[in-house]
Design a protein around this nucleic acid. Structure first.
Lengths: 201, 201
DNA sequence: CGGGTTAGGATACAAGTGTATCCATACGGG
DNA sequence: CCCGTATGGATACACTTGTATCCTAACCCG
């Protein structure tokens, strides 16, 4: 079968296999051989398309960030970007895992996040997404305040930081089974009502 | 040196060594030999005082829970348990790491939490603390509502769940260096002001 | 139509893992 | 005094890990 193979596609499939393992059994269970088995190829193939385990792990982190980004964009686009509350709700709903797919990705993300706390190489390779989100939403909410959508005595930067931290905390509790998606989103809605006033139907 | 040795003390020291490693280099770096080296004993000693690695890990988790519990109790006792806000502030300040010691414990806790997501044995061995805290604080805030300390249209259960999730999310951001302790506690104070009204000096 | 490069199978290797075993020592109680 | 047991040192074992090497097969191009 050899000659021309789509390297990019092969790397994507191997990365997907890696994230499937990380999402179900944790980063701890990720080994070259496990990835090969999950992807249905031989160990040599994994070695052939990635320089080493480090490169593989970084590829997984990058893909995970790309997926989150895609999800946020799709959801905010679907929400029409009408009100600031709509955008905020869409973003927060994206962070808290709702279906099996996003649950697996959140698991993998948590695993990476924890690993990055004690592995400088991973940390450098990409936890920039949270900061970007925070800035984007802050400017958005500042505009909303100018437009009178929220009270003047609120601090947009603090509100956004709190909401994002809240979403992260809720994600943890959902992943551990302490709460389900519905309960988590109820809490988010409760907080948004406090910020914007009761939902406008 | 042999005859009579305080087994309990020896186990505590080994557990402490384990948590020191987990807090600085992650659970991933925890091995029998590493624990032995960290505690300054031989591998055989670690084997002698613990049935196996699983028992060691469970001991670490138990100790971590006990430390958190102790910290919360000490802080709430020091706060005098006067107002509901005082208790709440004390608990939340305990969750968000402020000094190096609590930072290491929070690191270890995060590592355990993540591991428990994909390891049923660890999950069963002890993530009950969050639920207990949530219930305790909820009854406390319900009483405070009856006493008129917070507005009648607040839902104590949801408020507490949100505050605890917020504290967890803030902890993550502090551990990753995105924010420092001071910034995190400012956000907590901001939220408490929203709930109780501006601080009473 | 044949070599040369690409794609991958099979296997080897050193390092690190948890666990088990063998054996020496030192003390307390008889 | 001395023997049995508590304590721990040294070492071995089977296994998994990441990585490296050897070699075969297939395709594109001249």
């Amino acid at each position: 079968m050899p000659r021309q193979v789509d390297h990019e596609a092969r790397r994507r499939e191997l990365t997907a296999a890696l994230l499937r393992i990380a999402g179900t059994r944790g980063l701890r269970a990720v080994s070259m051989r496990e990835i090969a088995a999950e992807a249905g190829v031989s160990l040599r193939v994994v070695q052939y398309y990635f320089a080493g385990k480090q490169a593989l792990l970084e590829s997984g982190l990058t893909e995970l960030g790309a997926r989150m980004d895609r999800r946020v964009r799709r959801r905010t686009a679907a929400a029409g970007e009408l009100t600031a509350r709509g955008v905020l709700e869409a973003v927060l709903a994206t962070i808290v895992p709702c279906d099996e797919e996003s649950r697996l990705d959140s698991m993998a993300w948590t695993a990476y996040y924890t690993a990055a706390l004690t592995d400088p190489a991973l940390a450098a390779a990409g936890l920039t997404l949270p900061d970007a989100l925070e800035n984007f939403l802050t400017t958005r909410l500042t505009d909303a305040q100018r437009a009178g959508e929220i009270a003047a005595d609120r601090d947009p930067r603090t509100e956004i930081a709190a909401l994002l931290a809240l979403a992260n905390g809720l994600t943890s509790s959902v992943l551990s089974g302490q709460r389900d998606h519905r309960a988590a989103m109820y809490i988010v809605g409760y907080q948004l009502d406090r910020l914007f006033g009761p939902a406008t139907p």
